[in-house]
Every structure is written in C-alpha cells, then in structure tokens.
Design a protein around this nucleic acid. Structure first.
Lengths: 133, 133
DNA sequence: CAGACTGTCATATGACAGTATGACACACGA
DNA sequence: TCGTGTGTCATACTGTCATATGACAGTCTG
C-alpha cells in the first residue's frame, strides 16, 4: 500500500488517507483481512503526526471499512464487495474533472494534458517499483 | 452562474467557490467581463458568511482570475496565463497526481486512465462549445 | 516475565476556517 | 445630495486540523 499526500489540494490530511484506503479496499487492491500499516510507522513515513494517522484509522473504523484490534493492528473488513469497473471509472472521472478544468484555465491543450497525465502515471509507477524493491 | 457547495467533501467552502469560478471561466460559462454575483447576495443565497465569499473573491483576484472594482463589483478577466509553460505544467502535474493515486488504488490501468482523461477533456470542450453558441 | 510492538486516551499549542458584527470608502441612480 | 449598492478592513468568537507529548493497556515474541 502506497500512500501519497498532496498538501496543495486544501483537503485535510486524514481525509486523504481515508479516501485512499477506501479506494484500495473498493478496488480489491486491499482484500479482506489485509493488514494496514501501523500508526507510528506510517506517520513517520509520511512525516505526519501519529494522531493524524490515528484519526484517519478511527474514521475508517467508524465507517465500517476497517477493523482494529487493540495491540495487533488494523485490518480491512470483508463485508464491502468491490465496486464494478464502471463505478470505479466514474469515481476517477469526478476527480479528473478538476484537473481538466485547471488545464483549461492554464491554457494547456489536449495533447499536453494527456502527455502530463501519462508522465505522472509513469512517475508513480516508478515509485511503486522502487518501494517494492 | 450556479454555485453548489458540498459539505461532505471536506474541502474549505471558499476553495470550492474558487474552483467553481475558475471552472466557469475555463468552460466559457463566464466570459471575460462577466460580472460575478455580489458578495452579500451570494453569501445569503448560499447561507454562508459574507467573509467566506469575500475570501474566495480575494483569492480569485490574487490569482488573476477576476478583477474587482471597489464600489462596482467583481468581473471575470480575460483569460491569460501569467505563468510560463513549464510552470503551468507543473501546477497541472500536482493536481493530476491526486487522480493518478486514486487510479492506482482503484486498480485502473494506464490505458483506462488515459482513456477517461481524454473523455473528460472532450466533455469540457463540448460544454465550452455549447456555452459559446 | 521482559521488551517491543500494537492501538488508545488525554492534554496543550498554533494555525486556519467559518461565523457574526460593525465601520469605512467608493460608485451609481433618483 | 442622499440612499443604496458595491468591496474592504478590523475584531472577536467557535470549531477543526495538525502538531507535540506523555501515559496506558493489550498482543506477541524471546
């Protein structure tokens, strides 16, 4: 599980974590029973306070996405069936709309927009591989 | 100009207003010279404090999106980007990173990601065309 | 059992978002 | 000119986000 924070989005850090765990659970990237990173290690990795990660995990539990066992850790819950592909594409489309609007405002044309999109996708792919090695 | 606030998004109200005005300007719904709603009437319509709307307008002006004339109102500026192309691409890249992360968590591959990106770009292009006619 | 890990709780502090309110200067029309 | 509209500035208060700590209880391993 690779987390990444965007401090320019204006969105609370703990909510970004919530969204990312939800998305991973919804897609099946995190299957039922998968352990989540510990609060302290994750906080250190993201250079964020323990309480911020704890707040995200707390929110996820109260929403039924994860289950936390004191002394052991947090685990993805089983009950949520993954979203169908079309639903996942719709979720992504909503997010991309913001980027499209910004591109228009910045007068970036379609070709450039897609070029940057591909570049950023590849960049994360690289990070993923680096993290796995 | 129709504004709509989402209190569940976790995003600051004034930032939502900023994004929506930018979107309207980018899509052509608000062309250069268009007057924006007054601070006080809009605040009342959205059931939000004057200062919140004022803060959004203030941010929009400092970003060069609108022009405000004391005693008259706020108006959309001609769409010119003061930033050099590389800077603009960097700004877009920051926004796209969020979508890329979501795509990874939703297990949407590169081809699908770029397909959705193109589709959303075309969708806004279509809106622009409709607004200009 | 002892130590190292897990999550939990509580407190304090600083920054920001949003509200509420009052006052001010400028522009325009009756 | 006067009234009403516009945006602007200042202050005070509440709540949230995030940080920084310290302390506690449960779980697992050596």
């Amino acid at each position: 599980m690779l987390f990444q924070l965007n401090y320019k989005s204006g969105k609370a850090v703990y909510l970004q974590l919530v969204d990312q765990v939800k998305a991973a659970a919804a897609s099946g990237a995190l299957h039922a029973g998968s352990p989540l990173p510990g609060i302290r290690p994750l906080a250190e990795e993201l250079r964020v306070n323990r309480n911020t990660v704890a707040k995200a995990y707390s929110a996820l539990e109260s929403q039924g996405v994860i289950e936390t066992i004191a002394g052991k850790g947090c685990f993805v819950r089983a009950n949520h069936s993954p979203f169908k592909k079309e639903v996942r594409r719709k979720l992504l489309a909503d997010t991309l709309d913001g980027a499209v609007i910004q591109a228009h405002h910045l007068q970036i044309d379609k070709a450039d927009f897609l070029r940057v999109a591909e570049e950023r996708f590849d960049a994360l792919e690289h990070k993923r591989h680096a993290a796995n090695s």
